[in-house]
Design a protein around this nucleic acid. Structure first.
Lengths: 210, 210
DNA sequence: ATCTGTTAGTTAACGTAGTTAAGTAACATA
DNA sequence: TATGTTACTTAACTACGTTAACTAACAGAT
């Protein structure tokens, strides 16, 4: 009975068409500037057809975020093999920055938009599991660094250190997103700023190598 | 002859009423969630009356931002007397954090809301003047540090250093604002994280004291 | 072969938003 | 007393996200 399978396949195809169009428009013009009508026009459907496949406009963005977040987690897995915790920490930061730069709209949605708490069971990610939970992965790396005595002796709180590194890196990505086109500041490229922040922060947090 | 003066005074009064209402609503509900109609209702005028005093909704926000930027710059003036540029830099960071923590909603619309480019001549603040332009003040402090040889020798770009310090500090304030109630991360107090980031970053950017 | 229910769309319309147009009452000035 | 400006008002326009109501296509049951 291949009929339901074909139906399901066709359904996924139009879903993908909608997502592709939305991704392209969100990326070029930003979430708010893109209208449902424009997405619909791009795929040559009526605007309301989208609502048959997605609950609302935000569901489109959320779907795109899920996809990209999974990609980030996968990317993190290649970093997991680095033995040295400090070098691994550095690579986590760089990967995070690259994610933010290549998916600015998803980044905005995920990390720069205050939102009501999501029901935890609604998330597909297992909290605390470093293979799925990116924060847990970061924290485990930091914890290893603490255990191996790589951080300055007064710094023993893995959560505090994790948050500080995350926050500083987040600032490098997010501030230019909000302020890049205000014409006030002559912004330096984010990539270079990010490397500088990560390296300087690591230098300032770690113990001197003997 | 006092007629035009009285007129002008009345004009300023209603302008202030509009701004006060907008500030309160923006701060409590966020820029997008506030409508011109609600602002008008609060001051008991018709919605279109606002357009006699301000070009559009964004002009309201811009005016409020100018005011708060000026307040921040004034706050910075008390720091300007510190002679040592590195200690001054530290105090700038701490003052900035305090500003963000005591005015979280203003902080949100000043630094966490992406905006269309503003025409620079429309701003009341004189760009590049350290007494009015907070970024210029930060940059001048960094520049002094560079000139006095306090930073590592490869770090000679005052803009890059200014942005890196600003961005990292911004991250400490802004990430918890978006993520504090997601229940995923056990957040440490912002004050302590901020001090750690500022101190570690300064340690990582400066030359060792002889 | 025909009836029925579901699927995947359509068009029309609703409510709300920012904003503009057109009208008006108050009032200073000529 | 006539005129022009100021400071509004009401009505309306356009655009948005979204919902309601309708419909054509079609698989499965009678």
């Amino acid at each position: 009975m291949g009929i339901t399978e074909r139906r399901e396949r066709e359904r996924q195809e139009i879903r993908e068409k909608i997502l592709d169009a939305a991704r392209e428009l969100f990326a070029s013009d930003g979430y708010e500037a893109v209208t449902m009508r424009r997405i619909a026009e791009k795929i040559e459907y009526s605007p309301t057809a989208i609502y048959f496949h997605f609950k609302d406009k935000e569901a489109l963005l959320r779907d795109l975020c899920d996809t990209d977040f999974a990609a980030l987690a996968t990317h993190f897995q290649t970093i997991a093999r680095i033995a040295d915790p400090i070098e691994r920490l550095r690579q986590i930061g760089l990967a995070y920055v690259e994610f933010g730069l290549t998916h600015p709209n998803q980044y905005r949605f995920m990390f720069m938009t205050p939102r009501p708490p999501l029901s935890p069971d609604a998330s597909a990610i297992e909290r605390g599991n470093p293979e799925e939970d990116a924060y847990a992965f970061l924290r485990a790396t930091i914890q290893q660094g603490i255990s191996e005595g790589r951080f300055r002796p007064e710094l023993q709180d893995a959560d505090l250190l994790s948050q500080v590194v995350w926050e500083a890196t987040h600032g490098v990505i997010s501030l230019p997103i909000c302020k890049c086109n205000d014409g006030w500041v002559d912004w330096r490229p984010v990539q270079g700023s990010a490397e500088l922040v990560i390296d300087a922060l690591i230098r300032g947090l770690t113990r001197k190598a003997e």
